[in-house]
């Protein structure tokens, strides 16, 4: 099994860099390929079983888009063929149609997989928590972002929010999904924080694995689930 981690040296903000570490612990026999921004991605000439990309700065986001743009057709083929791809935080935004960086007065064309627009405003930080549902799996997570997504994701979302916002404050549908490409604005260590989702995601690659450190991961997950279900706990914070 081959797992490709894209651009971890610059796409690992907010604890996202530990998602690959958790995958490595969960899949001790898998081969992990860490592709640098200056490398040709492994997926261009090969088919990895899983691809992961994490959170990045805004200038890095623009560079990542330009790095991947020549491989857009290959990325579409991988998505159509069902390769599981996980993009966390603002990484998923690279797959949208356009990104407007309003505070920098820059507009960038994304890879256009999803017909959504992104508005990024460096002078407005949004911090919140999300409790959502993916089939029968409860997902818990955190968001800290400058951006919101606009457009219709009603046929292409990741989770339905039980508490917290979706792709923007008017939405209850969080993230984007096409086949096994999962994009979520939840950031940080989403896999260790959600061991059941980790197992589900690996299932998309045809792997029946037990999430690493399962007992302690489940203890932390269940405690958070209780807290997030408590109506007294506010879901937005400064």
């Amino acid at each position: 099994m081959i797992v490709e981690i894209l651009f971890q040296e610059v796409c690992g903000l907010y604890g996202d860099s530990q998602n690959p570490t958790y995958l490595e612990a969960t899949l001790p026999d898998a081969q992990f390929i860490y592709t640098k921004l200056t490398d040709v991605p492994y997926f261009v000439n090969n088919t990895p079983d899983i691809i992961y990309i994490g959170c990045m700065s805004e200038s890095t986001q623009r560079r990542v888009i330009e790095t991947l743009r020549p491989y857009k057709d290959r990325i579409c083929t991988l998505i159509d063929n069902g390769t599981p791809i996980l993009a966390t935080g603002n990484a998923g935004e690279i797959f949208t149609k356009t990104i407007s960086y309003v505070s920098e007065n820059i507009e960038t064309e994304g890879l256009g997989i999803f017909d959504l627009q992104v508005k990024t405003d460096l002078f407005n930080r949004y911090n919140a928590m999300v409790l959502g549902e993916l089939n029968d799996i409860k997902i818990v997570g955190f968001r800290s972002q400058f951006s919101f997504l606009y457009g219709d994701n009603s046929n292409s979302y990741f989770i339905k929010c039980i508490r917290g916002d979706g792709i923007n404050p008017e939405s209850k549908l969080e993230g984007m999904r096409k086949n096994n490409l999962i994009c979520t604005q939840l950031l940080g260590p989403i896999l260790p924080l959600n061991p059941l989702f980790c197992e589900y995601f690996l299932g998309l690659a045809g792997v029946q694995a037990t999430a690493a450190y399962r007992e302690s991961a489940m203890n932390a997950y269940e405690q958070r689930l209780r807290e997030f279900s408590d109506p007294k706990i506010p879901f937005k914070h400064d």
Partner: peptide, 12 residues
């Protein structure tokens, strides 16, 4: 003091 603090920074 903070309700359900984000643990993301532990991982950084």
């Amino acid at each position: 003091f903070e309700a359900s603090e984000s643990p993301c920074w532990f991982y950084d």
